[in-house]
């Protein structure tokens, strides 16, 4: 394969731009991580076990689900299968990112560990503004920004779990959709994007009454993107 000539972006400035670009999302992440840690501790996990999951799995929704399942006494395989369903959507993020960010093999191996909804969203939304185009540095900066705050907040939540008020009483549940709306709104640039968002969102709402959350996001996400592709290519605009 012929490697195209490309502008070489310096690593550290791009890293810190990525790191800072994700910082507004910390507001949504911190209560989410604290709530996970509190749930996990209440389910009988130790501080070390609670932290280990944040350090390795590093996937908020599935960690939350696992903590809930541990509490409910679900089988280990049920927890692992739910995790797989919830995290299969990362394949789509990787496919999309790999087309926009030039990555070597070691960079892919490293970037994969820290890939999340939020890092993906911030990277694609800010990509257009990056001088010289998106780079590994920007992606890793955004990823580690989330990793650092997720693990710090997990640790704080695991230690303080017993004395914190109930997250539901604080109303922090609304922060999760607000954070994702912040990522979605800049992407609604034309009518087709709005149609796809409405179809996928309402479809997911309907599916969520009968299917587990991870599968809903996967099915509605794929369905909405297929609809968008049909809308674009049918008119020969691709």
């Amino acid at each position: 394969m012929v490697e195209p000539l490309r502008h070489v972006t310096p690593f550290w400035p791009a890293f810190w731009r990525g790191f800072r670009a994700l910082m507004p999302l910390w507001l949504g992440i911190i209560p989410f991580a604290v709530a996970y840690a509190v749930t996990a501790r209440a389910a009988g996990l130790g501080v070390g076990e609670t932290q280990l999951m944040s350090l390795t799995v590093f996937a908020g929704a599935s960690q939350f689900a696992a903590a809930g399942l541990f509490a409910g006494g679900a089988s280990a395989w049920g927890i692992v299968a739910t995790t797989f369903l919830l995290n299969a959507r990362h394949v789509l993020y990787g496919l999309s990112l790999a087309r926009q960010v030039p990555l070597t093999r070691p960079e892919r191996v490293l970037a994969a560990q820290f890939l999340t909804d939020e890092a993906y969203g911030v990277t694609v939304v800010h990509g257009a503004r990056e001088p010289g185009g998106l780079s590994f540095g920007f992606l890793l900066g955004a990823e580690l920004s989330l990793y650092a705050v997720w693990n710090a907040a997990t640790f704080a939540g695991a230690l303080a779990g017993a004395v914190l008020p109930d997250p539901a009483a604080l109303g922090v549940g609304v922060v999760f959709p607000l954070a994702f709306l912040g990522l979605l709104v800049p992407l609604l640039v034309d009518r087709k994007a709005v149609i796809v968002a409405l179809a996928s969102g309402l479809g997911a709402w309907g599916l969520s009454r009968v299917l587990p959350g991870g599968l809903v996001v996967l099915l509605a996400g794929v369905g909405g993107a297929l609809l968008g592709a049909v809308l674009v290519t049918r008119r020969g605009e691709a």
């Binding site: 993020y93 999309s96 996400g221």
Partner: peptide
């Protein structure tokens, strides 16, 4: 077709994460 599909993935996935979390 699949390039267009990938372009619509973020819009679609974010909406699928948001709407059930609000209306549900």
């Amino acid at each position: 077709f699949w390039l267009a599909f990938l372009r619509f993935v973020p819009v679609s996935v974010f909406a699928a994460l948001i709407v059930p979390d609000v209306l549900g």
